Simulated scan of single mutants.
Amino acid sequence: MDIVMDAQALNAFLARDFPQAAGDHGIESVGPDKLVARLRVDDRHLRPGGTVGGPSIFALADIAIYCAILSRIGPVALAVTTNASIDFMRKPAAGRDLLAECRILKLGRSLAVAEALILSEGAGDPVARCSMTYAIPPKRPENSAL
């Protein structure tokens, strides 16, 4: 699978098309086998007890997997999640950003399957594991109307 969007292009895409997520999330690197995304954790992401809440962890996984797929197919804004499963395994380390390490398992014409391991930056054991399936819309002819 060739890389068609690098980290810089993906971050620009997020800033342009998903500014509500771009402030908290960023793509750190895109490689042939793995994409790494970051959640810049602050007080908005914490639940009572001072740990990062599940919705913030899930959002990181979803954005990271979405970008991993786009890194291979280009800026297809209408690719959407059709299935998701997440296992929360341990409490994130306090005061650290979260990283998602994503791998694409299958990339077809209409579906993509990928997984993400969520880690506290600098810690060894995963916080969560997520798998997702995305639907990829069919390509339209270049001269077709909306």
Rank of each mutant, 00 (worst) to 15 (best):
R72Y: 13
E101D: 03
F58C: 14
V4G: 11
L14T: 07
A68C: 08
A15I: 06
F58I: 14
R140E: 15
R129N: 09
V4K: 10
S110A: 12
S71P: 04
D87G: 09
E142S: 04
T133L: 03
G124Y: 00
C67V: 00
A135R: 12
A123V: 06
V36R: 05
V36L: 07
A9F: 00
I104N: 11
S56M: 04
A116D: 06
L78T: 09
L98T: 06
L119Q: 02
A116Y: 02
R72W: 12
D87Y: 09
I86W: 05
R44E: 10
L119W: 00
A100T: 13
I63P: 00
A100V: 08
C67I: 00
L78M: 12
I86K: 02
R129L: 11
T82S: 15
Y66R: 02
V113Y: 10
L39R: 07
A37R: 03
T51Q: 10
D97V: 04
S120H: 07
I118F: 02
Q20I: 11
P55W: 13
E115L: 07
Y134T: 01
A84S: 12
F13Q: 05
D24L: 04
I73M: 06
A84R: 01
D33I: 05
V30C: 11
T133K: 11
P32F: 01
G108K: 05
E101G: 05
G26Q: 11
K106G: 09
M5F: 06
A135I: 01
A61H: 09
L39I: 13
H45G: 13
D125T: 08
N143T: 15
L117G: 14
V127F: 01
R44D: 15
F18P: 03
L105A: 14
P141D: 13
F88A: 04
D43Y: 05
S110K: 14
A9P: 00
A64T: 01
D42I: 10
G26T: 06
A77W: 01
H45R: 12
M89Q: 08
R16S: 12
V80W: 01
V127Y: 00
R40P: 02
A135G: 07
P137G: 05
P92N: 10
A37E: 08
R72I: 14
P55R: 09
I65C: 11
A22T: 07
A77H: 02
T133N: 12
